[in-house]
Design a binder for these strands. Structure first.
Length: 463
RNA sequence: GGCGGCGUGGCCGAGUGGUUAGGCAGGGGCCUGCAAAGCCCCGUACUCCGGUUCGAAUCCGGACGCCGCCUCCA
């Protein structure tokens, strides 16, 4: 049984599925107005790992994650840069998918775009107006949060205490500062869609509720996103579903954020590091490993030092994969790996990892167990017990794969000249001509190889 | 003001009552022509003060410190 923390209840509980064997999950995606930053990288990795793990456990996952392609920030950038909003969206959505591909984040089964759902949103907003849970002001349509009795459930606060901390409000036409925009009237030159209550564009909170219900249906299983979406975004989605009397998410999952020198990384603080930059200069798997080595609900620091730490840990398991000539898993192979026959030490490892993962995705504990198994297999091989070591190594590889981490086990193919140098060096070593062997090693290093002596002679690989 | 989270060894980071977390870095050793890799061993821990208990990082009370949400944000 998989257990997960449910924000709505404030506790870890069994993942109770609408349809046994099938998981429907919606992960709030990005607004494509800028390059993705490390925080985007984290949430996509966290929920990618969850998705892969569910799949690994034999569940059939329907994973939906949206692209918000209409938003104030998009319009602002377009205006500032003298471009069309479509131009901005096209560029940054492409950047988004490039980053996701590098990170090894599996593509969602569905990727709804907000602009494809405007008509549905208009319909929902009209219904809210008819039922008097929304009202029209001079700049748009607002949702009246006081009509939802348990508003504040996800925030863990009642309406009145939320209001107590309200900040300066600019729009005095709103009945409550907590009321949120369902629809924003278009100003001159802004993108617009027709609606009975005036041309304009939808509010952010309405997009996700419409798209998630359309693609996953009522009472879908899991709604996820960064902790900062808990309130007000997810609260407001939930409020709309309540108002529409549509059963909504059965579970709410929120991941912790990325910190910078102890302070949250965020768009508004402008203290973010672009994910695109990070991926250009480091092995993307290092970020996945860094994310896996801390609990998904904890904050993480992503610094040159923590990334370097993860890169060295990665070298350890890559070396391990090379030692046992483990196949490089990726794509479909990750899932195929899950159906292997688990037995002996591999089965014990599998069970420990499953226990950790099914307990609210305790990936750091799972990582610890896998690294432990790496040592065990290495030690066994050192003692000459090759076959059991190899079997355990294959289990380790499959389990890392179950979390989307592929080990790079292959030795690189050498060019003819390098092959010749390797052969010469082996000859020199056989002749115990150490100075010549050392000279040839230098030659190979100069050609960009890492040189190691294995049982069968010189091994070379690229860094 | 309300609500929530956190404080573990040089660094990162698990762990809800007794049993090895793990990684990275450091020291010693084995192996190796040397190197690399690997293996073995080692040290420095649980913010502080009380309490409960045979026994607490783990439970209770208090103090101090840090962070977040109540505004757009993954």
């Amino acid at each position: 049984m998989i257990r997960l923390f449910d924000t709505a209840r404030g506790e870890v509980r069994d993942l109770s599925l609408r349809t046994p064997g099938q998981v429907s999950m919606y992960v709030c995606g990005p607004t494509v107005d800028n390059l993705p930053h490390l925080g985007h990288g984290r949430f996509t990795l966290v929920w990618d790992v969850a998705r892969r793990w569910f799949t690994f456990q034999g569940l059939n996952v329907h994973y939906v994650s949206n692209i918000t392609d209409i938003d104030d920030k998009i319009i602002a950038r377009a205006n500032n840069e003298g471009r069309s909003d479509i131009d901005v969206v096209t560029q940054y959505e492409a950047e988004w998918w490039d980053a996701m591909a590098l990170l090894g984040v599996k593509e969602p089964d569905d990727t709804p775009h907000a602009t494809d759902y405007v008509a549905d949103m208009v319909e929902l907003i009209s219904a809210f107006l008819e039922r008097d849970v929304a009202y029209v002001t001079s700049d748009g349509v607002y949702f009246d949060v006081s009509t939802v009795p348990d508003y504040g459930l996800l925030a863990g606060q009642a309406l009145d205490t939320l209001r107590a901390g309200e900040r300066v409000e600019v729009n005095d036409e709103k009945r409550s500062p907590l009321d949120f925009a369902l629809w924003k009237n278009a100003k001159p030159g802004e993108p617009r869609w027709p609606a009975p209550f005036g041309e304009g564009r939808p509010g952010w909170h309405t997009e996700c509720v419409v798209m998630s219900l359309d693609l996953l249906g009522e009472g879908f299983d899991l709604h996820c996103g960064g902790l900062d979406l808990k309130f007000p975004h997810h609260e407001n989605e939930r409020a709309q579903a309540e108002a529409a009397q549509l059963p909504f998410a059965r579970h709410w999952g929120h991941n912790g954020w990325v910190m910078v020198n102890g302070v949250k990384m965020s768009t508004s603080l402008n203290n973010f590091t672009s994910l695109t930059d990070l991926l250009a200069r480091t092995d993307p798997r290092a970020y996945r490993l860094l994310v896996l080595r801390s609990h998904y609900r904890s904050p993480i620091e992503v610094t040159p030092s923590t990334i370097a730490d993860a890169e060295r840990a990665l070298e350890r398991i890559d070396t391990f994969a090379r030692r046992f000539s483990l196949p490089v898993l990726g794509g479909e192979a990750f899932e195929i790996a899950s159906v292997r026959a688990w037995e002996g030490e591999g089965l014990e490892l599998y069970e420990r990892v499953v226990t950790a993962m099914n307990d609210d995705l305790n990936t750091p504990l799972a990582m610890a167990q896998l690294f432990e198994a790496v040592s065990v297999a290495n030690a066994a091989a050192d003692e000459g017990r090759e076959a059991p070591a190899r079997r355990l190594a294959q289990c380790v590889n499959s389990l890392f794969g179950g979390m989307g981490l592929s080990l790079h086990g292959r030795n690189d193919v050498a060019d003819e000249v390098s092959e010749a140098l390797v052969a010469e060096r082996d000859a020199a070593r056989s002749a115990r001509n150490w100075s010549e062997a050392d000279r040839l090693r230098e030659e190979l290093v100069k050609r960009g190889w890492i040189v190691e002596d294995g049982p069968s002679g010189t091994l070379i690989r690229k860094p």
